[in-house]
Write a protein that binds this DNA or RNA. Structure first.
Lengths: 148, 148
DNA sequence: TGAGATTAGTCCTAATACGAACTAATGTCA
DNA sequence: TGACATTAGTTCGTATTAGGACTAATCTCA
């Protein structure tokens, strides 16, 4: 065990950037999650509802692609939303392998109420960034994403 | 449910930045997680091991503060690391409420092996950023974190 | 000193989260 | 057409994850 090697690793120049990426995201995620406190929705559930809003339904694959929820997890999330009567599963007629998930009337009301509320809640913070800072941040984040 | 209101919300200027933050972080996190494939460690477990490396032990509170793992979760993570004989719980003598978590000899070997390996694995990607881009990204992320 | 507040961890529940194995349906191509 | 690969979701096992109730220890301060 060579402390010199682990210490050299601990001094890598990119580590502050990596830590800041994690902390910035987690600070945002924590704030975002707080917004759902009174909504009876988890973050994942709200994410799905918001993805389905103003659409005629999406398949699991589409929802997974947009929310970054993996399919195994998504089955459970949709199960719970279905139990709450917020979404409905409909087997596609053209391709019977896929399932279209649509908002119920209750789900549409939920979306109409919670989506604008959450957006306003988030906007209050994001709008504290100047346009220039927001543009710079967007560019930086794109470059970071493209690294992986 | 007033599409005009939800559509106005969906057009908020800050949304691309918010999405990019989530995607950049998740792209990084997915790559990071891949690095632990052959290590017999989960991301959370590695995070704890790396935090304990080259120290004389840390309390739950310290570990939680650095890794951003909440205490309830940390109990389970430490349990599993203890089962693998990688860490050890020692009650503090000065304040018997707190528990010092230290690496065992096996844990130190694990740290000495996996930490430099993972850092090199991550460095390979982060080093593709120019110094200027990395500096700009760091500044942007700090500003984002300070929003919340 | 002693009651009340605070702090550090643990325990519990519900919900993610991921990967791998599995089923049903569809596509491919010789 | 028919064997084989591929795709969409489900199921399962293990491990987080957050939050809240709980216990034990410490602190505060009158």
């Amino acid at each position: 065990m060579k402390p010199s090697i682990t210490k050299a690793a601990a001094n890598e120049k990119f580590l502050p950037l990596m830590r800041e990426l994690a902390r910035a995201y987690q600070a945002f995620a924590a704030y975002d999650a707080l917004g759902y406190r009174d909504s009876d929705l988890t973050t994942a559930q709200a994410d799905v509802i918001f993805t389905l809003g103003n659409t005629d339904g999406r398949t699991f694959k589409e929802i997974g692609g947009r929310t970054l929820i993996t399919k195994g997890t998504l089955t459970g999330v949709i199960d719970r939303l279905e139990q709450k009567d917020l979404v409905k599963r409909v087997t596609c007629t053209d391709d019977r392998r896929c399932v279209l998930v649509t908002l119920t009337a209750k789900g549409k009301r939920k979306f109409g109420k919670e989506f604008p509320r959450q957006i306003a809640y988030l906007k209050e913070r994001f709008d504290r960034l100047s346009d220039a800072d927001a543009q710079a941040a967007l560019r930086s984040l794109k470059k970071i994403r493209e690294l992986f």
